[in-house]
Each structure stands twice: as structure tokens, then as C-alpha cells.
């Protein structure tokens, strides 16, 4: 669903249309949840997603429609994650047990399972600012401008953080000769 449609739903929800509010949540909840999986951790992502919507819908009356509703919602999710981390200092990331659906989907490169897990752990191990910029642009699919609006920072900061996150990932995966992303050299 595109940004204009999501924003229109948010404006209708603001004016008391519960059906639109439901559609708004349905259209965005997967992205919010994915962002929170990466910004916080999988075990609390559901709880934090719920908190994000409670905050966002509760303050929807103040939403003016200036920024796309998706960016506005993601910036709420980002604050929820930050508050959560402040409440509870983050435990070291332990490799989560691999679920059935953790396998790469059809369009994925023909890498093996271990490789994709290694990439995921490398993303989790990134510096928080870099991880945030990287996840917003690569996983959520925001443009640099949209990510900058969510993080309230200049576009150039997003650009350099994404680049550094990429460099970190390439380095991290190159450090594991058995699982180098680029085997042929």
C-alpha cells in the first residue's frame, strides 16, 4: 500500500473512522513489527508494536498530515524502542533459535541457511545508529529522505550511516572465511 493511501487512512482514522483505523493498522503493522525486531529484540517486538499503536492512535488527533503517516508512525515506533531500551538496558544478543520460516524466500540468492543467519546476526551486532539507518532503508524500504525524517537527522547522516553499516557487514562476514558472502574472491 502506498504512502498516500496510508496517510489518507490515518486522516480518516483521526476523524473517528474506526474502520480506517483498522485498515491503517493492518497496512502498517508488519513493518512496525519488523523495525522493532531489529531496534529492540524479537522477544519484545510484539509488545512494543502494540505500545507503538496505542501511543500513535492515542495521539492521532494531533496528526496534521504534514508528513506521510507511515514515517510518522515509524518515528513513534523508534521512540517506543528507545524508551524500552532505556527502561531495560539491552542484553547481549543471543542467537535466537531458528524458526521454520527463517529460511530465505524464493527470490533469495542461493545461499545456505547458515549464511542468512550470519547476515542477520551481523545486522544485530551493528552500532545502534548505523543499524537503525540500515534497517529503515533496507528492511523497511524507506528512501534516505524518509529515513532522515523518521530519525530527525540530515539525509547525509543517513547516507553515511548506511554506508558504514554496509562496510561493517562486509567486514564482519569476511571475517568468517567459511561463510564469506563473496566466495569466489
Amino acid at each position: 500500500m502506498d504512502d498516500a493511501r496510508i496517510t489518507a487512512l490515518a486522516l480518516r482514522a483521526r476523524d473517528g473512522d474506526r474502520g480506517a483505523a483498522g485498515e491503517f493498522v493492518a497496512a502498517t503493522q508488519h513493518q512496525v513489527w519488523r523495525l522493532l525486531v531489529h531496534l529492540a529484540d524479537p522477544s519484545v517486538a510484539e509488545e512494543l508494536t502494540q505500545e507503538t499503536y496505542e501511543r500513535a492512535l492515542g495521539s492521532l488527533r494531533r496528526y496534521r498530515g504534514d508528513a506521510p503517516a507511515r514515517s510518522w508512525l515509524l518515528s513513534v515506533a523508534r521512540r517506543v524502542a528507545a524508551d524500552h531500551l532505556r527502561r531495560r538496558s539491552r542484553r547481549p544478543v543471543s542467537p535466537a533459535p531458528l524458526a521454520e520460516d527463517d529460511r530465505p524466500v524464493g527470490g533469495a540468492p542461493r545461499g545456505d541457511l547458515a549464511e542468512s543467519v550470519a547476515v542477520r546476526h551481523a545486522v544485530d551486532a551493528l552500532d545502534p545508529d548505523r543499524r537503525e539507518a540500515f534497517v529503515l532503508t533496507q528492511v523497511i524500504g524507506l528512501s534516505y529522505e524518509e529515513a532522515a525524517a523518521v530519525c530527525r537527522c540530515p539525509i547525509g547522516t543517513i547516507r553515511s550511516r548506511v554506508a558504514r553499516a554496509r562496510a561493517d557487514l562486509v567486514d564482519a562476514l569476511a571475517d568468517r572465511p567459511a561463510e564469506r558472502p563473496h566466495r569466489s574472491g
Binding site: Q29, T49, D101, D102, G111, V119, V123, L169
Partner: peptide, 14 residues
């Protein structure tokens, strides 16, 4: 790898 990584469906909170 990152963009195509499959993830669980996530909760339905509507």
C-alpha cells in the same frame, strides 16, 4: 541477503 531475508508473519494487532 538482508532485503530478501524471510521473517515470520508478525502479530495481528488490529
Amino acid at each position: 541477503h538482508v532485503r530478501t531475508a524471510a521473517v515470520g508473519a508478525g502479530p495481528d494487532l488490529v
